[in-house]
Design a protein around this nucleic acid. Sequence first.
DNA 1: CTGTTAGCGCTTTCAA
DNA 2: TTGAAAGCGCTAACAG
Lengths: 326, 326
Amino acid sequence: MATIHDVAREAGVSIATVSRSLNGRSRVSEKTRARVLEVAAALEFHPNRAARGLVTGKLGNVGVLVPDLTNPFFTPILAGIEEVAQSRDMGVFVADTREDVDAEGRLITRLSQQVDGVVLVASRMDEEDLLDLRIKDKAVLVNRVVRGMSAVAIDAYQGMSELVDHLGELGHTRIAYLDGPSRSSLGRSKRLGLADRAKELGIDLIVLGHRQPTFAAGRESAEEVRSLDVTAVVAFDDLIAWGLITRLQELGVEIPQELSIAGFDDAIEEGMVRPALTSVSPQGTSLGIRAMDLLLDRLQRPAAPASVEMLGCIVKKRDSTRSILA
Amino acid sequence: MATIHDVAREAGVSIATVSRSLNGRSRVSEKTRARVLEVAAALEFHPNRAARGLVTGKLGNVGVLVPDLTNPFFTPILAGIEEVAQSRDMGVFVADTREDVDAEGRLITRLSQQVDGVVLVASRMDEEDLLDLRIKDKAVLVNRVVRGMSAVAIDAYQGMSELVDHLGELGHTRIAYLDGPSRSSLGRSKRLGLADRAKELGIDLIVLGHRQPTFAAGRESAEEVRSLDVTAVVAFDDLIAWGLITRLQELGVEIPQELSIAGFDDAIEEGMVRPALTSVSPQGTSLGIRAMDLLLDRLQRPAAPASVEMLGCIVKKRDSTRSILA
DNA sequence: CTGTTAGCGCTTTCAA
DNA sequence: TTGAAAGCGCTAACAG
């Protein structure tokens, strides 16, 4: 690999001039700059980011922590983050915590040395532990809010409220909710949005306790749901809804004729499940983009107060929910 | 962040002694080492990897390039890689090329500065372009073989051969194959394995041209498959098979009564598709583990000749393939 | 066994 | 406009 010295020698200038030509901060005569750039290109010179980072304190890359890479909820968020990163010529470090809180702490610590900032998606850590990491001015949370830290949140309250509206319009008066992980901070918003609006509309809401946000967990909930005497079921996320649907269908339940089902995330590709799943879409790509924007802001002015953004959801009405009115 | 100097001062020794205590290469008295370690822990000192990398030439992390993070085929491979990396206290940089060949080249170049080596999973680049990158002694290919480069390959030939055996035993004598992307190097092995064994067994094989390895592409193939007068269909991968199944079912075709269907990758979670899909499993986690092993070997002895490993596949017989014999 | 010192490749004052 | 020189945090000879 060519170093800055090689370029300097070849171009007949000092390394300082090469550095300036490349970074364009300070003035260099157009003529020298042109020659330096030419030589640099010819030598395929790429400044060593580690070395640059040593002196500037900036590495030019960010880290992203997700609880589960395979969960389709995170994919668009990652896409949004990478989109912004690429446009700024920054690298993205992705790490999968596998829903393991301990691993999360370790990974954050580890990642912190190699990146300028981190995006923590759906962090499962305790607020205290998170704060102890002292990363508040180089981190942005997605889908989680902690005092003093920047975050972009999903307005699940609004999303779930609108979902209840939808169900109400369809005539449902008794619906069940399959809750997700107890640590999920989004969980509370979802539950509240559901409960508050249900109350307003005079709809009975039966909340079934915590479970993992997995296809398998959805399947395992089928029996309980069946015994419940509700006409509609809302799941914590699409994976659970999906598992539930397939299992119910195996048990001979007709969806949506006998039971309406809705999920959250809008993470299932068109046609993957039948009937097409009604779902609340949190607009993942936008989440990722906004998170990166906030992070970049924050890295510019670490002293600035933390800002929290709330992004709305859209209810995607599809075939798994249907009217029970005559 | 505490630096090595802080630790040295606090422990009353030189920075060299701190370095030695931490790295354990050279001898330090147990007493001093203990004190240094204690101070380091108290200060939450973590050596700056960039700085260390500058002098040692090793950064302590590897990069992984995958064509599509959302494709479940890559998930276990990634898991295998991360498993080995974690055990060696190395970091993993993941980059998604989105099936874009140009992006792949750029990302490799970019990543190369921040990592000691890279694992290129299912690289789509030209052999020439890949060689031009001059990364052969710091890269390992997965699912792709290029002269002079280390690689761990999937024995798709064997896997597909055994799948034909399975189909033959079930009495099928005329089967279709839905091919994948034309650039896929695995494609040829799959096609050959299928064709050779089919020929040996006197089975007719109808090969349908290239398509993307996506659920949608599978759905779009349904009509063509239906018009084909075959009793079994093998798809390039599970995603295609899955799309095909759902679309065929919508069209009223009974699977596997009217048509047996099999995929490749074994990437679909139990219960996600009905009937459960017969699939050839390439054992992704092992692929990832072996790839990392090879990479680590390579980084130790860059001069060693490139080695290519071939990992066998296992045919997972499930409910989507059935006997047509009486 | 431990300290001093010379860089790794780069950016950034400070002079010229 | 350009160059010399001082480090960024760390490791690795080389002395002692």
